[in-house]
Write a protein that binds this DNA or RNA. Structure first.
Length: 253
DNA sequence: ATGGCATAATTGTTATGA
């Protein structure tokens, strides 16, 4: 199974790039974040014409997630099962693997209401996983986590130290999820770090490779053992009208 | 302390992102 995660920063703005990428890479599963469309406005026909099913949890203007897959998804779940008004999680069973696609809150500024929401959302995700799954299940948790796990995931650690992406409380929130029973399959294949999945549009962020690794593929051990490689498609950040995130891809036997 | 850039909802300006 070839699985990828990509924050497209508006599926309508990225539709041509997305279709070209699907045609070129032909992943079995592609988890998308920041669709910025309602379910009604999701470009379902174009996705289906490319040969993919879509489990969509959309939202107007902000957020929105989807799982695209060549096989039909089963047991689709939308949201964390509470009254959260933001569309940040969609899960499905595909080819015997539980796929949980998450768009973690950014948090804006440490100490703000959005920051508290981010930390709370991570705790709720931890409870969601513990309620529904076991670490022995073949399970993938992937998406835009809006956390750089450690400074090997940050090109300029001093610039980002203490911000919502690198704050010790955000990192601890993610490590708690990791400790529940995941391996970070990209990190397993690239222990040297210093590879990034997001670059700011401003200040020549990409040209200077001033990036962070915020997009992650976590797999339970039973599945991680079957992982044959993981890469960031940083070429997709180049050219005309890119997303500010690059796709992250992992291949499982 | 703020802007840099991009996107959506709107048509001049704001909210949000990371």
């Amino acid at each position: 199974m070839k699985l990828a995660t990509w924050n497209v920063n508006s599926i309508r703005a990225r539709q041509e790039r997305l279709l070209r990428w699907l045609d070129r890479e032909r992943p079995d599963v592609l988890c998308l974040q920041e669709l910025k469309v309602t379910d009604e406005a999701f470009p379902r026909e174009a996705i289906e014409a490319a040969g993919y099913h879509a489990a969509v949890f959309g939202q107007k203007t902000y957020n929105g997630v989807a799982i695209l897959s060549r096989d039909e998804p089963a047991d689709v779940q939308r949201g964390l099962g509470d009254d959260d008004p933001q569309s940040r999680l969609v899960a499905a069973l595909i080819d015997g693997v539980c796929i949980v696609n998450a768009y973690f809150p950014n948090g804006q500024e440490v100490g703000s209401e959005k920051w508290e929401y981010k930390l709370d959302w991570m705790r709720r995700l931890e409870a969601y996983l513990a309620d529904r799954y076991r670490p022995s299940d073949p399970l993938v948790l992937c998406g835009d986590f809006n956390v750089a796990r450690d400074d090997l995931d940050v090109a300029r650690p001093h610039q980002w130290a203490g911000t919502v992406l690198c704050h010790p409380d955000a990192r601890e929130g993610l490590e708690a999820i990791h400790r529940w029973g995941f391996l970070d399959v990209f990190r397993e294949h690239h222990p040297e770090g210093r590879l990034y999945s997001w670059w700011d549009y401003r200040m020549l962020g990409f040209a200077q490779n001033n990036g962070l690794r915020l997009d992650h593929i976590f797999a339970t051990e039973t599945l991680a053992r079957r992982c044959r490689g993981a890469e960031i498609d940083r070429d997709e950040r180049k050219g005309d009208k890119p997303s500010d995130h690059a796709p992250v891809v992992a291949v499982f036997d």
